[in-house]
Design a protein around this nucleic acid. Structure first.
Lengths: 215, 215
DNA sequence: GCTATGATGTAAACGGTGTCTACATTGTAG
DNA sequence: CTACAATGTAGACACCGTTTACATCATAGC
């Protein structure tokens, strides 16, 4: 199986799809080992190619890591879109609230089921890419759309909409990182799930209430 | 300055405070370079000692990183305690809310002013250590105490207190990570600060409101 | 069809890293 | 004073990212 293309045909001097093969291999490694597991030489080895060959397709290791992170973000977006599609379509503001809730739960669900990919997705900054053919909208855009629906359905005021992305995202991203490898990684599963539920539910109040503190 | 103790005295075969020296050096490196900058060999070099010497004091590199992370957490706790001490002491529930707010702001303040230390603090899981002589209470305990005061002052019900740690911590930790090196790292400072403010303020509503969603 | 050229892969090296092993030196308990 | 445990050294090993000079290939233009 070494030195063969994934198809199984004997390969000649040129690989043909090396860039893709390297990313595939690194994505697979990141799934179980996180960002630290994406290592250039290992990827080239699995592709049956010399180490230097990688530099025909990536400027450096970070460049590969960025490509891997993009794929992880894609997987994440895919799951969230899928969960949104599965959600029962409630009319009006109820539906909008429901979608915010579903998206938040899916975000944490991905982090828990694919911690390696989740950590890799945020291990390196990656500029927003234009929407790919058949790809999802991207994490941030999904969130923006869901929040916009809260306004159009009259669930919240335009004032509450202001910077609501950051509020919602912070909560969900925070609990996801703390629970997967962070300081809360050893929480018993039941307590962990209850905490996630509490946090995701609380996003509602966070987004809905805007204004000055009483003090 | 090489091969000399920090005091300046010529050192003999034994260093005397090597463990401390290595941690100091690594903490200093982490301040500007984050967790990736804590490298064993560099630390031993700066201590004027051979690479292997480190293994008399640390099981491996992660063991050193853990020690560094603890110091970073200490620094974080110190700042938060300081900010809490500086806060004007309001009576009753107003004071309790104020303290929650101040602690949250201090948390993000540390992350922004010391991103290297902040990321190092959470780069590796570190078990809660018993309170050190003269040290702070530890991040989590500070939060617990602040939230308990919300109950004792009657600001929130015991029901709302349940798992409030996770709610408050998630928001604040989330915005801190997103804004320092995360996906929101390029936010213009004004927008960034406004977002932080919005998030920290929203913690109030998050903690205060508990119950089922309308849907 | 032949060939110049750019794209892609190779081989070998470099410096850096974490880690181990066998050995040297030193403080200290008995 | 001496045996021993603690601590530091020297040198090796495998691995990593990265660079350089060179080999092979696809193909555009004659």
């Amino acid at each position: 199986m070494s030195n063969l293309r994934s198809g199984g045909t004997e390969r000649s001097y040129h690989h043909g799809h090396l860039r893709h093969a390297l990313v595939d291999s690194a994505v697979s490694a990141a799934r179980s080992g996180g960002p630290e597991a994406v290592v250039l030489r290992a990827a080239t080895r699995k592709a049956g190619v010399s180490a230097g060959a990688a530099y025909r397709h990536f400027a450096d290791r970070d460049d590969l890591l960025r490509a891997v992170a993009r794929r992880c973000l894609d997987h994440m977006g895919d799951l969230i879109e899928r969960r949104l599609d599965e959600a029962e379509p409630l009319p009006g503001s109820d539906g909008a609230w429901r979608r915010l809730h579903v998206a938040g739960r899916a975000y944490v669900e991905f982090a828990i089921n694919e911690p390696g990919w989740f950590h890799t997705a945020f291990a390196i900054p990656v500029e927003a890419q234009p929407r790919r053919e058949g790809g999802n909208r991207g994490l941030f855009q999904i969130l923006v759309d869901v929040l916009d629906q809260l306004v159009t359905t009259g669930a919240i005021t335009p004032e509450a909409r202001l910077r609501a992305e950051y509020v919602a995202w912070s909560s969900v991203h925070g609990i996801a990182t703390l629970v997967t490898g962070g300081s809360l990684r050893d929480l018993p599963p039941a307590e962990r799930d209850a905490s996630i539920d509490r946090v995701v539910r609380s996003v509602t109040f966070q987004v809905d209430n805007v204004g000055n503190l009483p003090i």
